[in-house]
Design a protein around this nucleic acid. Structure first.
Lengths: 109, 109
DNA sequence: ACGATTCGCTACGAAATAAGTAGCAACTCT
DNA sequence: AGAGTTGCTACTTATTTCGTAGCGAATCGT
């Protein structure tokens, strides 16, 4: 399992440009979704699994590790939750909700 | 090839919530990156391939089709370029650049 | 104290997706 | 006409994701 992080080589791109690492990390299936679910509330492993359409536990497990390595998620007594960094990411991604509504509308025309 | 679109079922999630479709679409490898590259300038097939670390043409081809279906990218005489919708998506994703810098800094501590 | 649940997580084979390489038809340039 | 470029397809291999089963530890109810 390789976690895409800035500075580290990001899938062939030697540039080490931070945003490429973001694309790589968020480009993995489920990562965005997991952050999204945890944005609302902290969740246990199994609860998180349920809220993500019953995604397979093996993948969830590797995702949790990646997101933890990336310091976006942390394990706590109440379950998994976002770190401050993770919360700030979700905040910058927040406008996506409005955009998606607009997109949906455009596509239906 | 299935293109995740709002309204359409999004990978098991019956909700049809638009933002889930966004996560699904952007969660596929290369999609975010392709949009990012096209944000700067329109590119030919091969130029786009080069700018994405030489990604395989087969995948690039399916991605172009998906992004075209999603009305985010369009083919023009000057090459592939973003639609207005695609541009607006990249604009909402723009704060990600600043966030990634912050992230990089936090991780190095 | 006992079984029954629930929990986080691992194992592992099957299915889906991505990578890598070769090459072709159409076009341009000389 | 010949050489180079472009968009793209075909096909094989590698990697990622899925799906299911299940284990050991903690918690619950009785």
């Amino acid at each position: 399992m390789t976690t895409p992080l800035p500075n580290k080589s990001v899938r062939g791109s030697s540039s080490g440009v931070a945003i490429m690492a973001v694309f790589d990390l968020l480009g993995r299936k489920w990562n965005m979704r997991i952050l999204w679910e945890l944005h609302k509330t902290s969740l246990s492993f199994r609860a998180l699994q349920q809220s993500c359409d019953g995604m397979s536990p093996s993948v969830l497990n590797t995702r949790i590790k990646q997101l933890t390595d990336a310091k976006l998620v942390i394990s706590s007594p109440e379950g998994y939750k976002l770190t401050a960094l993770g919360t700030s990411l979700m905040e910058t991604l927040d406008p996506l909700r409005d955009w998606s509504a607009q997109w949906k509308e455009q596509l239906s025309k």
